[in-house]
Amino acid sequence: MSADLPTDVTRLTQALIRCPSVTPAEGGALTLLENVLTELGFVCHRLTFSEPGTPDIENLYARIGSSGPNLCFAGHTDVVPPGEEDAWSVPPFAGEIRDGILFGRGAVDMKGAIACFVSAAAAYLAQSDTQRRGAISLLITGDEEGPAINGTVKVLDWLKQQGEQIDACIVGEPSNPRRIGDEIKVGRRGSLNGEIIVNGRQGHSAYPALADNPVPKLARIIDRLSVLPLDEGSERFERSNLEVTIISVPNTVTNVIPGQARAAFNVRFNDNWTRERLEDAIRSCCEASAAEVEADMRLTFSFSGDAFCTEPGPLLDTLVAAVRDVSGVTPALTTGGGTSDARFIKNACPVIEFGLVNATIHKVDEHVPVSDLSALTAIYTRFLERFFAAA
C-alpha cells in the first residue's frame, strides 16, 4: 500500500469505491481502511456481529490517543446496489474521474466522506504539537444501508462493555443540498414501518359470490390511512408524513380473486409523536376502516428510531466555526431528510452530521467533484484543530 494514500483524499476515495461493498458484503473496504489507519498509528478492532435471520456484518473501530475527550467519526462502507450497470456512464466500481468529477457507487454516500476524514486526521496528526490532548476514533459499519442490526448498535454495545467512551461524534452522511457548507444535520425525524394484511377467500373472478375479495377492502383501509391527519410540523422539525410504499397480492393471473392482499407503509415523524402514540393513532384508523368493510385485517409495526435533536453546544459551535473558516459560509442547522445511524449514537454522546452534497446519492452515476473532497477535508482538518485546541 502506498504510504501517501491516507493524505491523497482523491486516491483514497477511488480505492474505497473500487471495493464492491454492497450490503452485506465487506468487499475489501474495511480491510483497506484498517491498513490505512494502522499505518497512521490507530489501534484497530475488526468486529463481526450476528443475529438469527440476518447476515453477519463486519465492522471497524479504530482509535488513536489514550486520553479524553474521544472525538468519533462515524460512517459506513456498505453501499446500495448499483442497479443496471449498463445505465452508468462509467462502471460503478471503477472509481473513474472525468473532467474533475469522480464517479462511483459510494462516492457521496459515503466513502468520499470517510476518505476526507481519514485524510484530515492524517494532516492533523502530522502537526508538530507535542502536547496534543484527546483521542480520535472511527466507528465504521457495514450495515447502515441494510437492516442496521449487526452494525453501529452492536459496536456501541461492545464499546460500553470495553469501558470505551465516546464524548462527541460527527456522522459523515451527505448533509449538503447544493454546496459544501450549506447545512449541518442536528437531528432527524423518527421512522416507523407498518404492514397491513387483509385476508379474504380465493375464488374464480366469474363467481364473486363464492369468494371474498380482499383487494377493495385493503384499498379502503389504505385510502383512509393515506389522509390521516398527523401534524403541521414543530419548532425544530418539518411535518410528519405517512407514505404507502408497497401493495401486493399473490396473483399471477387475472381470473382469480386472491385470498390475501398486503400493503406496507413508512411514517417519518417529528417530536409531536412518540412511537406508542403514533402506533395507537394508526391502529385506530385502520381498525375503524376495517370494521366498515368487514375486513379480516392484521396490522404489524417495526421501529427504526424516535425523532431526536442535538442541542447547541461545543461540538456544534466548533463545526459551525470550522465551516465558516474554510468556506466563508455559515451553515443552516436542519433536521430534514431520512434517517441515519446518528439515531443510535445520540444515546451515547452528542452527535451531528456533516458530509458531502447529497444530490446524487443512490442514483445512477453517483458522483462527487474532486474539489468537494478537498473542501470537506479542509473543513474536517480545521474542525479537529479547533476541537482539540478547546479540549
Rank of each mutant, 00 (worst) to 15 (best):
L384T: 09
L71M: 07
I257F: 04
A74Y: 04
I257Y: 05
F237D: 01
L225F: 04
Y380C: 07
A209M: 12
V320E: 10
A15D: 12
S119K: 01
I246C: 11
I197R: 15
G190A: 03
C349Q: 01
G134D: 12
F354R: 13
F49R: 03
K111Q: 08
L356T: 01
E292M: 14
V293C: 12
A211S: 11
F269N: 05
A15E: 14
F73Q: 04
G100E: 03
D306V: 14
Q131K: 13
N193S: 13
K346Q: 15
I222Q: 07
E164Q: 15
F93L: 11
I114E: 10
E51F: 12
Q14R: 15
H362W: 09
S340L: 02
F383V: 06
I184T: 00
E353T: 08
E366R: 10
G142L: 02
E353P: 13
P82L: 04
D56W: 03
P91A: 14
E385H: 07
V249Q: 09
R298P: 00
L71Y: 04
L376V: 10
V22P: 08
A206W: 10
L278Q: 06
H45V: 05
G337H: 00
G95Y: 01
S205Y: 01
V244M: 14
T377S: 11
V108A: 06
A389R: 13
P91F: 05
N213M: 01
Q202A: 10
F308D: 00
S327M: 07
E39H: 13
L60T: 04
I184V: 05
E26V: 04
I140D: 06
I222K: 06
I345C: 00
H204N: 06
V357M: 07
T38Q: 09
T13K: 10
E294W: 09
E164L: 14
A307W: 02
